[in-house]
Design a protein around this nucleic acid. Structure first.
Lengths: 233, 233
DNA sequence: CGCGCAATTGAGTTATATCAAATACGGTGG
DNA sequence: CCACCGTATTTGATATAACTCAATTGCGCG
């Protein structure tokens, strides 16, 4: 029994060593020795669009490294309002905020097809003790999350609806490797910007009529980045 | 010369060991050995209300532990809009976001009389290498800053102006040791909530007329926490 | 092809911004 | 201690942007 578990763990670590996007993920700088310390399985999991990875209030025995796709972090207010506070993409960690053992502070929902690595928190805890390399990787994740949150406040929650939508489009565009980017539903745009679905729709439709935004197939879109930057930001 | 510098450094570390609020600050869990590694002076600095601790874009050779008072972190947008994204109080670190050497992402301005410890970044860097205790203390600061930022988005940047002001008052009240709390200027309240100075004033005046808010001397105030919580969350 | 959901659009309402004026307040100097 | 000045706050009238509610159109998927 114990043998089988350990076998599985080793296979997990082996996969990590050869991970195609390892340079982007939490374990980027780990050595072979570090990997040999991993005695629990790391699973590769896929989610369909709109899947809940975890719920606000959940116990969090795992963190999730995003391999591909987008995950939204949603916070619900007691009065029923909800607000999307962050978007996670490749290399980001879902559950970072709860590494200390606190229950989940957000609901995590996939926006498109998503692949993640599910990492037991115990692995993080034990590696953290032994290797400063993981420490630095974690600090980088915190850093990115925090500056992202600050931008969310100043750029996406300030000014009129038109500016907010424009700055959201610019942000989505910048974060995309591709020339195009994933265009969220109007409802999600509203929840990111603190405006109604209808307002998000009106502004988006306006940009489309101006030729600043061109929807493509498969929920993706293109923007005239130069012109949009000139008018807003 | 070199001697004098080292003397000063040792005095700095000595003061840290005996700091009255050490249980609250970054160096809470350091051992005597850790302090002996500090070879640069840590200075105790005071600021009058409205002082700029650093400016957006500044190089950041220091971080600042808040000993007493409140510091606002302000971000300026290219179009002139500005938004307060965080309030730092006792035990918080100003400059946390720039420990990696990036120029300051915010402007830091004191809201009242403030005392800080100015810590050279080099000290953090060298201690970080040697002691996991500082690492954990830093992680805690990141954690607090990030959950604070998320709350800022969901509670202070969502809903109508009245709710936002109410939730700001509740937040200020919670973070205060005292029964009373520091009431910011209406302009600052507006910059925190993404509303105009006049709107912040109207809502505040409304609460005062309802008896939910009572201004005290010295820019401080009291709120009917129970009733405010019942009406707004 | 049609069903269901998402997006768009419009009309009417409301909240907030804007502009302007009056009042209160804090600090300073006589 | 009081009078005065500059600044912050309050208040009101009006304009405007966003919300609300409702109907229509568009789109993807079975």
């Amino acid at each position: 029994m114990k043998n089988r578990t350990i076998e599985s763990a080793w296979r997990g670590a082996e996969r990590c060593k050869n991970c195609a996007i390892r340079h982007l993920v939490l374990f980027a700088d780990l050595t072979h020795d570090d990997f040999d310390r991993i005695h629990h399985p790391i699973d590769d999991i896929e989610f369909k669009p709109g899947s809940r990875v975890y719920l606000q209030g959940d116990e969090m025995p795992f963190v999730y490294t995003v391999r591909s796709g987008l995950i939204k972090l949603v916070q619900h207010l007691p009065n029923g309002d909800r607000r999307i506070v962050r978007i996670l993409s490749q290399g980001d960690l879902a559950g970072l905020e709860n590494l200390d053992g606190q229950p989940a502070s957000h609901e995590a929902v996939t926006m498109d097809h998503v692949r993640v690595c599910r990492i037991p928190r115990s692995i993080i805890a034990s590696l953290k003790r032994d290797t400063p390399r993981l420490h630095d990787a974690l600090l980088q994740r915190w850093q990115k999350a925090l500056s992202g949150a600050d931008n969310w406040i100043t750029r996406l929650s300030t000014g009129n609806a038109r500016s907010r939508v424009a700055r959201l489009l610019l942000l989505l565009d910048e974060n995309s490797e591709d020339d195009s980017f994933f265009l969220p539903t109007r409802e999600d745009m509203g929840a990111m910007l603190g405006i109604t679905t209808e307002s998000a729709s009106k502004m988006t439709a306006g940009f489309r009529r101006n030729g600043l935004l061109k929807p493509l197939e498969d929920h993706r879109a293109w923007i005239d980045e130069r012109e949009l930057k000139k008018q807003f930001d």
